[in-house]
Design a protein around this nucleic acid. Structure first.
Lengths: 185, 185
DNA sequence: GTCTATACAGCGATAGAC
DNA sequence: GTCTATCGCTGTATAGAC
């Protein structure tokens, strides 16, 4: 019963941070929802930031895995397409989507947070790894935007009457369109 | 001398909010940088949020203007291209770029702020107005991503050794590429 | 009109009792 | 492992000096 207090804190905190924002959510709120006091949270986590860091760790490992795979493959259009599909599949898992939504919505608050900095750096590395060293900047930018479409697309289509699966499918197909440029690079 | 205290507050506040985040910047910081007390700020602005609202007002008017122009034109590829160019030109003015960067980085903090809500709604309306009522969702999404490229592109290319003008030119050309899709819609 | 002085509740964080 | 009590700081508010 007491063993998973830590996990419950992570769960409640991530949900409230995503709904209301990181800074707008007080430790008192989190504690009250769990039926404990603020100070009890400080037994499990050193700081408020620390709650976030504990959740973000897994995601970094996955990004590193994706990056290693991408770099181990030959730089071909098919590799890039396959990477985008894998990336989209990863986003489907709701835990990542929750974490992703949280990070997207709390960029400023967490800008100087080391774990979050590491995650953003990985994101840029991934975007860069989609291009060869001699590709011009505009090609790099276009491919980065393809990656961003997977993240943004699901949010941008929220106000249409679609299922989540349809949203993902549309985001995926637009991302693939953008990836290789007009009339196939 | 005292007349432009208000303008100076807006200027300093917007800069600090952008650099450090909205919630992470205290009114004491802003006041100290201007050589006044916190309470002086409350003479000029009712609340902290109110400082933001006062800055965002101008931008909403401009968005409405852009929207009115776009809706008054025939829905052709050339209209859309021209709109993207005008939008990019507007972004060039540093005041808008500052405001844009600020908003981008403080989405959560300001989510429930009425003026900011109005701005985000305009942004989505603009993205929607790039498409006809019977365009499929994937075409709408692609065109929205073209618009976003103008905002994001300048940030994404920050770590290359380019002038601001080169960055804008690249963002503009990639946005135009994305706008009309593979092999020109 | 423009600002200072002062007060207040709530915040993240810490110390120490149980 | 959780509590109470407390710290310095925040945004907000008002009374009153000039």
């Amino acid at each position: 019963m007491r063993e998973d207090t830590r996990a419950k804190i992570q769960e409640v905190a991530l949900r409230l941070f995503t709904e209301q924002g990181y800074e707008a959510t007080s430790l008192r709120e989190i504690a009250e929802e769990l039926g404990v006091t603020k100070a009890a949270l400080y037994y499990h986590f050193k700081t408020k930031d620390d709650i976030v860091a504990s959740v973000a760790g897994d995601r970094i490992a996955e990004q590193d895995e994706m990056l290693a795979w991408l770099r181990s493959q030959p730089q071909t259009p098919e590799t890039r397409r396959e990477f985008l599909r894998r990336y989209a599949d990863q986003l489907e898992h709701s835990r990542h989507q929750d974490l992703g939504r949280f990070l997207e919505r709390n960029q400023t608050s967490l800008r100087d947070h080391p774990t979050i900095k590491a995650m953003r750096m990985r994101m840029l590395e991934v975007a860069e790894a989609l291009s060869a060293p001699d590709d011009p900047v505009r090609v790099r930018l276009r491919r980065s935007m393809a990656l961003f479409t997977l993240h943004t697309g699901i949010w941008l289509t929220q106000h249409y009457d679609l299922t989540d699966e349809e949203r993902r499918e549309i985001a995926r197909s637009v991302a693939l369109e953008i990836l290789e440029g007009p009339c196939g690079d």
